[in-house]
Simulated scan of single mutants.
Amino acid sequence: MSALGALMIAALIAGMMLFSASPTANAQTVTVHKTPWCGCCAAWVDHLHDEGFDVIVKEEEDLTPIRSRLGVRDELMSCHTAEVAGYVVEGHVPAREIRRLLEEKPDVNGVSVPGMPQGSPGMETPNAPDRYDVIIFSGEDARTYASYRGTQLVSEPARP
């Protein structure tokens, strides 16, 4: 085989490997800070795994210092706090909105689903799901990034 032929075969194999990489191989790592006793946090971690994210779980007795360091105000708090690519993800944020945040790369601290809305990822229930907003925030500014009923997108306001 000629050197040119060998080079072409090597390029073909490299191209096939590049485009056949599994989604997990290209997954973004999310670090989740949660209390050891929270089951819904573990269910949200499962949601992220199912959606192709790599997840590192750090169990903490007190999330207050972490939230303070990351700029999560009281009205944005939920039961767990995550970090991904320099952003904060507070609470039961759907994976779709995390991917959107990573794609758009807005100049913000992060996103939050305040409280623990029934039917949000990790808070699934046989009861009717709540309608809730995913809030994008930075400093004192906060606005709706998307609205959901359970795990179903209801509306997505204009992009930042």
Rank of each mutant, 00 (worst) to 15 (best):
M16A: 05
M17L: 15
M17P: 05
L18W: 08
F19Y: 10
S20I: 00
A21L: 12
A21W: 05
A21C: 07
S22R: 10
S22G: 06
S22L: 03
P23T: 02
P23K: 13
P23M: 01
T24Q: 13
T24R: 14
T24L: 06
N26T: 03
A27K: 07
A27S: 00
A27Y: 01
Q28N: 09
Q28V: 05
T29C: 09
T29F: 01
V30C: 04
T31V: 02
T31L: 07
T31D: 01
T31Q: 05
H33C: 09
H33P: 03
T35F: 08
P36Q: 05
W37T: 14
C38R: 00
C38Q: 01
G39Y: 04
G39T: 08
C40T: 00
C40D: 04
C40K: 00
A43N: 10
A43S: 13
A43I: 05
W44M: 00
V45G: 06
V45T: 15
L48G: 12
D50I: 06
D50M: 09
E51R: 15
G52P: 04
G52V: 07
F53V: 09
D54A: 14
V55Y: 10
I56Y: 01
I56E: 04
V57F: 12
V57W: 11
V57I: 14
K58I: 14
E59K: 11
E59L: 07
E59T: 04
E61P: 04
L63Q: 04
T64M: 01
T64R: 10
P65Y: 12
I66Y: 13
I66L: 02
I66C: 10
S68L: 11
L70K: 12
G71C: 06
R73S: 13
R73H: 12
R73N: 06
R73Q: 11
E75C: 11
M77L: 06
M77Q: 15
S78L: 07
S78D: 12
C79I: 11
C79A: 09
H80D: 04
H80G: 08
E83L: 12
V84N: 07
G86T: 10
G86F: 03
Y87F: 15
V88D: 13
V88N: 12
V89L: 01
G91K: 08
H92I: 13
V93C: 02
P94V: 06
P94W: 13
P94N: 00
A95N: 05
A95H: 12
A95R: 09
R96H: 15
E97P: 07
R99I: 05
R99D: 15
R99M: 14
R100M: 08
R100G: 12
L101V: 08
L102E: 02
L102G: 05
E103F: 09
E103K: 13
E103I: 06
E104G: 08
E104R: 11
P106A: 12
V108N: 03
V108S: 01
V108K: 10
G110R: 09
G110A: 13
V111L: 15
V111S: 09
V111H: 11
V111D: 02
